[in-house]
Every structure is written in structure tokens, then in C-alpha cells.
Write a protein that binds this DNA or RNA. Structure first.
Ligand SMILES: [Mn+2]
Ligand SMILES: [Mn+2]
Ligand SMILES: [Zn+2]
Ligand SMILES: [Zn+2]
Lengths: 144, 144
DNA sequence: TATTAAATCTGTAATGATTACAAATATGAA
DNA sequence: TTCATATTTGTAATCATTACAGATTTAATA
């Protein structure tokens, strides 16, 4: 995993996004934290290093990156948006207990569908996720 | 589709929920509006018939029905929860343009998975949905 | 029937995530 | 430098949801 500033910079340039310092830091954060973080998590760490960072900038940047296809928004918790640097269609597991979101490695059956429509609706994205109790939380339960 | 008050009443009783008038009306609404409505939509119609209806009661009742397994919460828009009277695991289509959520009839490949775990995580729910432009919105686009 | 405790409903306030917006700052060309 | 544009920042507003306390209803008991 290459996550130095140079790589992140060229990644933004390739997508036609001006690589400002704030944007570089936010994108770098996403590369280094693959747990599908919230805006809050991103902001809380960056404000330590960049005391002038505004939460609005985090929101603005994530929206921009999302629109340009650099990151994906995950909306499965119902309370807040989670962000994913992995833009390839893949499935997730949401733990009902701790709220963690894991990537799961299942081959999506619809991924290579020949037709990009269903019941007349034009399909642009395919999402799949599981909900339950994660490995860690199961272990905790058993140790009680 | 049977959606008279008697049916709705016995449905609540079977689940051990006291069938109050407000609960009956909310559940009846869900039976008659299969478009995965929001709290707002439910409240806006019921307040016409029952001027004393409180939005808090709508929230409370939907939470109760959800906990008792009478309805399902759908959290795919990222902005508000949508409610589904159909509790059997099925897939959805969310239109990016008009926001409508449709049921789609695809056989879920994970539905009859023999193992109820994945990567050590205990699976309790399986969710799948597509995003794109719905049939209606496609037609509108073409007529411009 | 009257009493009373528990359950339910209601209205308002609080919360938390997100967006709107305008002023401040940085950037980059002329 | 000058000036227009893009970006960032801080604050206020919005919107969905939850917390909470008082009012009302229900149902059991005397
Ligand atoms: Mn992921
Ligand atoms: Mn449905
Ligand atoms: Zn967990
Ligand atoms: Zn549509």
C-alpha cells in the first residue's frame, strides 16, 4: 500500500482535482484508515496535525472526492455516512454491536450481469451488505 | 392484499403488541403504501385523519414494530429511514433522481447460504440494493 | 363504580449530522 | 503588483431523530 504524499498528489491530479494541502491530508487519511471512517473520525485526527482544518472542508472535500469517483460513500448505518477509499464494487459487514464496517470477500453475483437494467431501471451501482455480530464482539461475548 | 383494521389488529396481537388506534392506523398505512415511505409521509397523511397524532408516536410505533419484526427499516438513502412492511429478505432499487425505492425481484444468492457466518462474523441480515435511474425517470429524460 | 398503577400518547426541547452561506485566505494569471 | 478565481474557514441554519416530562388512556383491583 503506497500512501505517501507524492502518490496521493498524483492521484488527485489524475482526476483533475487541484491537490491542496487539506485535500492531500484527507485523501492520505483515507488510504491509511481502511475502516470506513466517519467525517468525525477524519476531522478529529486531522485537527491535531492541522489546527486550522475546518470540518466544513472535510465535508466539502469528501463530497468532491466522491463526485470525482475517488472514494465511495457508504450509507448503511442510517446515522452517518462512512467513507471508503476502495471504489471497486465490494460487499460489507456491519456489526450491530460495535458499529464497525468490514469488507467481506464474496463474489457479487450481479457484478458481471450482462444487462445493466432491471425491471426497466438503469443500474449504475450495486451494493450488498450483511448485518450481525462481528468476530471481535463474538469473542467478547464468550469471555463474559 | 388484506388491509382492513381487523386483519391489522390480529397481526399486532399475534406479535404481542397491544393494538392501539394509533398503531393500527400506522400499520394499516404501511400495508396500503408499499413505496417504502418515510416518517414524514406517514405522519402527513395520518395527521389529516387523526388530528391529535404526534410525530413522536409515529417514531415510537415504527421502532416498536421494527423491534418486533413486523416491519423493516431501510437505510440506503443516507438521509432518512424508509419503512418496509415486507419483512422477507429482498432487494431494492433506489432512484438517484426521484428518490423512489422499488422492490426488485432477484433471487438473493446468499439467501440459502448454509453457513450463517462470514470471515468469523455472525450473519443476521442480508441486504442488497441497486442504485441508478428508475424507469419513470428514464422516460421523462427521453421526452425532453 | 371509584381508585389507582401502568402503559401509551403528546408536545417540546435537545441532539447530531449535514448543508448554506458569507467572509477570509490562498492561488495564479496578467 | 493587481485582480479575478478557487479554496478554506467559522458560524448559522436545516433536517431527521431522540430524550423527556406531563397528559391521557387503559385495565386491574377494591
Ligand atoms: Mn469497503
Ligand atoms: Mn421492499
Ligand atoms: Zn462488533
Ligand atoms: Zn426515478
Amino acid at each position: 500500500m503506497i500512501t505517501n504524499m507524492k502518490h496521493v498528489k498524483s492521484e488527485l491530479e489524475q482526476k483533475g482535482i487541484k491537490p491542496t494541502y487539506q485535500r492531500l491530508c484527507i485523501l492520505e487519511y483515507l488510504h491509511e484508515h481502511l475502516v470506513h471512517p466517519t467525517v468525525e473520525m477524519i476531522y478529529d485526527e486531522l485537527i491535531e496535525r492541522i489546527p486550522t482544518m475546518s470540518k466544513t472542508t472535510v465535508y466539502n472535500t469528501l463530497k468532491l472526492l466522491s463526485e470525482k469517483g475517488v472514494i465511495n460513500e457508504i450509507t448503511i448505518t442510517g446515522t452517518e455516512v462512512r467513507y471508503d477509499i476502495n471504489c471497486q464494487s465490494h460487499h460489507h459487514f456491519l456489526c450491530k454491536k460495535c458499529g464497525k464496517i468490514y469488507d467481506v470477500d464474496v463474489t457479487c453475483p450481479f457484478a458481471n450481469m450482462d444487462h445493466k437494467e432491471i425491471s426497466g431501471h438503469e443500474i449504475q451501482e450495486i451494493h450488498g451488505y450483511f448485518k450481525g455480530i462481528c468476530k471481535e464482539c463474538l469473542i467478547k461475548q464468550n469471555n463474559e
